[in-house]
């Protein structure tokens, strides 16, 4: 077993940690970097609770070695909101009750964020498929699907408004 000093880019910041090579990104985020927003429900890749974005794509932190994502841009739920300005997904989830216990929400939100970044106006069915690897035990998913579509709508309106105002494509994050 060997330990390495690792620099991870998490939520836009370079974070240094001395990491056992066999430790997963989940362990390093939660236990070394104290970013406990990322949850875990099985640690075997079966529930999606630990989903984080690696270079913008949803990955399972429980099956990713931290050493394997050195140099990648990692986004966790803590990195979604700008200070004082929640991600439109977070606002929509709050308004529509898409987070009940909230335990699946960190993973659900980043999966949804990746979807909207790749496909700003998805259909309901596309949202369902994009979130099919994130289990939720509380909501019955309806509010989650609605919230993602609402956030997409608002993203779209914001982009359109920005465009009309000559601001171009500013993005919302």
């Amino acid at each position: 077993m060997s330990r390495r000093l690792l620099v991870l880019r998490v939520n836009g910041l370079a974070r240094e940690a001395a990491v056992d090579e066999h430790h997963t990104l989940l362990e390093v985020l939660r236990e070394d970097l104290h970013l406990t927003g990322t949850k875990h429900g099985c640690e075997l890749g079966e529930c999606g609770a630990c989903t984080v974005l690696v270079d913008g794509e949803p990955w399972l932190a429980c099956l990713t070695l931290a050493v394997d994502v050195e140099g990648c841009e990692i986004t966790t739920v803590e990195g979604l909101a700008a200070p004082g300005r929640p991600d439109p997904l977070q606002s929509a989830f709050a308004e529509l009750g898409a987070a009940q216990c909230g335990y699946c929400s960190p993973g659900m939100l980043v999966s949804a964020r990746a979807l909207l970044d790749a496909n700003p106006s998805p259909t309901r069915d596309e949202v369902r498929h994009a979130l099919a690897g994130n289990l939720c035990r509380c909501t019955g998913y309806e509010a989650i699907l609605d919230a993602v579509l609402l956030a997409a709508d608002r993203d779209g309106s914001a982009r359109a408004a920005a465009h009309v105002a000559g601001g171009g494509d500013r993005g919302d994050r």
Binding site: M1, H22, T24, L26, E27, H40, C42, E43, L44
Partner: peptide
């Protein structure tokens, strides 16, 4: 938490 056993990674 389920954890990996130690191994050498190449």
């Amino acid at each position: 938490m389920m954890r990996l056993p130690p191994f050498a990674r190449l």
